[in-house]
Computed example of a mutant assay.
Amino acid sequence: MRMHNADETCGIARAAVVLGDWWNVLILREIARGHVRFDALAAEIGLSRNVLTERLGRLVAQGVLRRSLYQRRPVRYEYVLTDAGLALLPLLVAMQNWGDRWVLGDGSLTATADADSAEHARMHALAGTRVPEELRLPATRVPEDLELPGAQGADLPVVSPDAAATVLFTYPGTGVDWDEEIPGTPGCTLENRLFRDAWSDFRRAGVDIRGMSTQLPYEQAEFARAEEIPYPLLSDARHQLGAALRLPTFRGAGRLRHKRLILIVDAERTVRHTLFPVDDIPHAVGQSLRLAEECARAV
């Protein structure tokens, strides 16, 4: 790409060189979703093998991807995001948020969604999608007497490795003075309290719970201590899960935030049910318990 001299010190222009065109953006989108092998990328994007090879080579040369050998005969590689590549995920999520609101939507700022929206269709199409196996996020501490392996403030897998099913619910954020003009924002504390109060019922069914927002770990930890939350709260501040599942977001109180959503995920990390939008929080919590129990019994 030819650059004008004035662009040599412009971060936007230099980033545009790396992203190149929409094929590069789609390649990064699919790798974030866990499609890290060549054939999977070719199938998902519909790009010719020659062009895909050339684009992957560029992204590796630019330090956004690295190749990881997974087979020697014949030689096969996986393409993994580097630190520089991971730092692009908030940009991809911001692009998705802009597209959902201004291209696919009517420009309204909302933390919920209509039944005929692109976000609604995308979330309900998640059934059958597998959550990337290697994805781990910073988690809050939980009471030690719960004996949850590894749940003591370290990074945790998004899907519990020891449960027959996992309920993963996303929420905009707790302790925020929400603008009442943004529909769908109130109720984050209520939702956590309802899941907390039903925690024993979920555990008896062999089901684990993960709450998730884009708040920072210390913000979540303060809330978890104050409310005695027994399950981990995961921080997606770097938008890793948001990019992996193309989760719906909105911009509120100074950052991109997840819209309220509940996913029922089985022991193989496959999404079985999606509750979105979540307008009636008490009903959705009860429904998630019923669906998770069914999912756990099917194991």
Rank of each mutant, 00 (worst) to 15 (best):
A226N: 13
I45F: 06
W98P: 00
L126F: 00
V278H: 01
H4A: 10
L47G: 07
G175W: 06
R196S: 11
V271C: 00
L91G: 01
Y70K: 13
G242A: 09
V299Y: 06
R122C: 01
A43S: 15
A43L: 13
Y218E: 11
R203D: 00
L216A: 14
E78I: 06
H239M: 13
T249N: 02
Q62L: 14
D201R: 13
S288I: 04
R33H: 13
M212E: 05
P161T: 03
L65F: 05
R76T: 09
D155V: 15
L59Y: 06
A296T: 11
V18G: 04
E191S: 03
A87M: 03
A61K: 14
V18T: 10
G175E: 04
Y171W: 09
Y70L: 12
V278G: 02
L26G: 00
P282A: 07
F169E: 09
P230K: 08
Q152Y: 15
A221I: 11
R210N: 06
R37T: 15
R193Y: 05
W178K: 10
P161A: 01
A163K: 03
V278M: 01
L65A: 03
F195G: 02
G63L: 11
A296N: 08
G34N: 14
R141I: 15
L41D: 04
A87E: 12
G175R: 06
T270V: 14
V207Y: 01
V60I: 13
W178R: 13
N5W: 07
F169K: 10
Q240M: 14
G242H: 04
D197P: 13
A224H: 04
N192L: 12
Q287N: 13
Y231W: 13
P217L: 09
A127P: 01
V64G: 02
Y231D: 07
R193M: 09
G20R: 10
A32V: 06
I209P: 02
E133H: 10
K259A: 02
I31D: 08
G46I: 03
A164W: 12
R130E: 00
G150Y: 10
W178V: 12
L52H: 00
C10F: 00
G34I: 08
P138L: 14
A115E: 03
G187I: 04
S288R: 03
T174A: 15
Y70S: 12
T170G: 07
L146I: 08
Q71A: 15
L190W: 00
L126N: 01
A253V: 14
G254R: 15
R66V: 12
E147Y: 13
A94N: 11
D162F: 14
V36F: 05
W102F: 07
G85H: 00
I264L: 08
E191M: 07
G286T: 02
A40W: 04
L137F: 09
T189R: 08
R72V: 14
F223R: 09
R251W: 12
V158K: 03
R101A: 02
W199C: 05
L194W: 11
H35F: 08
D39N: 11
L291Y: 06
R73M: 14
L234I: 10
V207C: 04
I229P: 01
G173K: 06
L91Q: 00
A42K: 08
